[in-house]
């Protein structure tokens, strides 16, 4: 036996292995995801500075795509409209999601798990199917209209609920709601009961305890829930297409169209870069809020 077998896990100083197998192995394992994510993303972002000439992409760096985008009022208004839409979806879902998560948390413990599962099941249900089902309800011939007419609220079926911006708002709100229920509940659950008791013992009313203990403690989950809704709504291109019709144009759909009908990939890549910057901004802000509340 050489003394190699005795020095397991400890490399003798001043001696280098001839072939470092494990190190190479770990290098490959770590490099694989980094390359698979960064290389395509980097290339794609670079494409945003290119342009199309006679149907082929020309890799010449210029800011033309960005100038075109921001100097065209139609594009800018679509972006602003989508930002408003996404903010509305996120705000609505944070509010409703918080209400539901709070209710579940205040129920007797036996109910927590079943109710939470009920609120989570839609998360893993096919996205396309949810859209299909909602469209069949909201449509002119759909059950919502039929019900409203049957009850007598409407004289005849209305087009109010499908193929406009409102229908996109409703649909995204419903589809992304479970994304906020779960994280909010998980932070609520982590609040130590002793903290709530302490607040009550010190004479805090139910409202004061809620306002100064529960709300700040659950802020990280609420922010994460809102972040998911916001980012998903910003980039979604299928929901607007399925329930938005001609009037329901959003930023995600605008990007998508550059890769289909318009076939201007560099311009699409430039717009996707704008989306990326916005999303990273949202993530950074959310991260900062979470860090600040956890520091307190």
């Amino acid at each position: 036996m050489t003394d190699d077998s005795l020095s397991i896990g400890i490399s003798a100083p001043g001696r280098k292995p001839v072939f470092n197998g494990p190190a190479l192995f770990w290098f490959v394992i770590c490099a694989l995801p980094v390359v698979a994510v960064c290389l395509p993303l980097g290339l794609f972002l670079a494409t945003g500075f290119w342009h199309v000439d006679n149907g082929t992409m020309v890799p010449a760096l210029s800011l033309d795509n960005y100038v075109n985008f921001f100097s065209n009022p139609t594009y800018v208004s679509v972006l602003l409209q989508t930002l408003t839409l996404a903010a509305e979806v996120a705000a609505g879902n944070m509010l409703i999601g918080f209400g539901i998560a709070y209710f579940i948390w205040r129920c007797p413990p036996v109910w927590h798990f079943p109710l939470l599962v009920l609120g989570t099941i839609p998360l893993l249900m096919s996205y396309i199917i949810k859209l299909y089902a909602l469209r069949s309800i909201l449509g002119n011939n759909g059950f919502l209209n039929q019900a409203l007419v049957a009850v007598g609220l409407f004289d005849k079926a209305s087009d109010l609920f499908l193929f406009n911006q409102t229908s996109i708002l409703i649909t995204m709100g419903i589809i992304y709601l479970p994304f906020s229920i779960l994280p909010i509940y998980l932070t609520l659950e982590r609040i130590p009961l002793s903290l709530l008791h302490a607040s009550a013992d010190l004479g805090g009313s139910a409202w004061q305890t809620f306002r100064h203990v529960t709300l700040p403690c659950s802020l990280p989950g609420t922010v994460v829930g809102g972040m998911f809704s916001l980012i998903l709504a910003l980039g979604d291109f299928v929901t607007p297409q399925m329930v938005g019709g001609v009037k329901g144009f959003t930023f995600g759909r605008l990007i998508w169209s550059q890769f289909g009908m318009a076939f201007d990939w560099p311009f699409g890549a430039a717009m996707a870069t704008i989306l990326l910057v916005l999303s990273i901004g949202v993530i950074v802000i959310a991260g900062a809020i979470i860090k600040r509340t956890e520091a307190i």
Binding site: V37, L39, P40, L41, L43, F44, L45, T47, I231, L232, L234, G235, D236, F237, G252, I255, W256, F259, W265, G268, A269, A272, L275, L276, S279, I280, I283
Partner: peptide
């Protein structure tokens, strides 16, 4: 964590383009 947090359209398009 990037592909998980970023909008799916960015992950999809960057892979497609590459």
């Amino acid at each position: 964590f990037l592909p998980f947090l970023l909008p799916p359209i960015i992950t999809g398009l960057s892979l497609l383009s590459s």
